[in-house]
Computed example of a mutant assay.
Amino acid sequence: MSPQSRQRPLLALLIRLAAAATLSLMMALVKLASESGLALPEILFWRQLPTIPLILLFFWATGGLGKLRTTRMPQHGMRAMIGLAAMLLNFGSVTLLPLAEATTFNFTSAIWAVILSSLILHERIGIWRWSAVALGFAGVLVIAQPGDGHIPLVGAAVALGAAFMIAVISIYIRDLTQTEDSLTIVFYFSLLSVPPLLLALPFFWHEKNAEQWALLITLGVAGLLGQYLLTTALRYGTVASVIVMDYSALIWATLFGWWLFERLPPAATWFGAPLVIGAGLLIAWREHRLARPREQSTATL
């Protein structure tokens, strides 16, 4: 079945919406785990470890163990290396920033994707997308307000770095989904990222109480489910078509921030977030418009 024939835009949007909610929950749990005294490398380890047996069990129960066979281990290895760096920065951002602000900075991944397309892929970027890049970074400046102390600049830098790495990962995932099952991609990401985390674990080991174990187990399950949904959405729709649902994460982050941490975003975030979101939507709209002539040309061949 060709990638084009698998496209189901509405299903992709719904899956991506569920992914945004699930991953927002995971990030809230990461922040709770960090505030309970757990170190970031340990949180990362327990986030990744449960994924391996759970996916093996699922494939065994459904007779799908053959799906783990792959001829693309180098691509999985690169995706795991970049993904681990992105996860480290992403989890780090929520320990340094409020949930809503960390989530908003995460939205700049679409902006970074445009810059990468220009610098690495040498894609011609028109006025619309460059305008979106400028609009998005203007929103970042409004939120961060450098110099006033509202947002720690280290936290903002970590969050922007995470968004940059997410933009890189999206390219790898979109390529891998052409030949690999979604759970296969998630499985190899966890399998290849656990060993380096295991090596670091003795330096950060912490005796845990029942509440901390519950946090780690729940965020591990939420992370697996969210990652699966995120990857599956890219199987049924393009990055440009589903990215609109990612912005619902700001709603969830705001709700979790208010419910769990008794904090609502300040005025600067409410003014800056629409600029960042608007930039992402403008990029998605422009990508969609540019893709239509290519699809029509392919259809006539």
Rank of each mutant, 00 (worst) to 15 (best):
L301N: 13
I185P: 03
T238P: 00
I82E: 13
L260R: 10
P274C: 01
A12L: 07
T254Y: 06
L56W: 06
A291K: 00
L281C: 12
F58E: 08
W112A: 00
P202I: 09
T218Q: 02
F58C: 07
L32R: 15
L29I: 10
I120T: 01
I217T: 05
T62Y: 07
Y236K: 02
Q7E: 15
G272P: 03
I82A: 14
A80N: 08
R6D: 15
F203M: 05
S241I: 05
V133R: 00
R8G: 09
K31E: 04
S241A: 12
P146E: 10
S297W: 10
A102D: 09
R294Q: 09
H150S: 15
R263Y: 06
L32G: 12
R6S: 14
T179W: 12
T232V: 11
S2D: 10
I143G: 05
F189V: 09
L290K: 01
T103N: 13
R79S: 07
R294D: 08
A20M: 01
D181G: 06
W112P: 00
R79A: 07
E123K: 01
W128Q: 02
L301C: 10
R6E: 15
W128R: 04
S24P: 14
S241Y: 12
W285R: 11
M26V: 05
L25E: 10
M27N: 15
G257M: 02
L264Y: 05
T95K: 14
L260E: 12
V140T: 00
L49R: 05
S24H: 05
W46K: 06
G257L: 04
V158G: 04
A249D: 11
R286N: 09
F59W: 13
T104V: 14
Q48G: 10
W252Y: 14
I169H: 13
V140S: 00
F189L: 11
E287T: 03
A138I: 13
I82N: 13
Y188H: 08
T108V: 11
L160H: 02
M81Y: 15
G149E: 01
R6T: 14
F256I: 12
L84R: 07
Q296D: 09
L17R: 03
T70S: 15
G37R: 06
I169W: 14
A12N: 06
G136A: 02
L38V: 09
F164C: 08
S5M: 11
R294N: 05
N106M: 14
T104Y: 05
A33L: 09
H122F: 07
L201N: 01
V244F: 11
L141P: 02
L121G: 06
L198T: 09
L97V: 08
S5K: 08
R294E: 12
I111E: 02
V94I: 08
S131T: 02
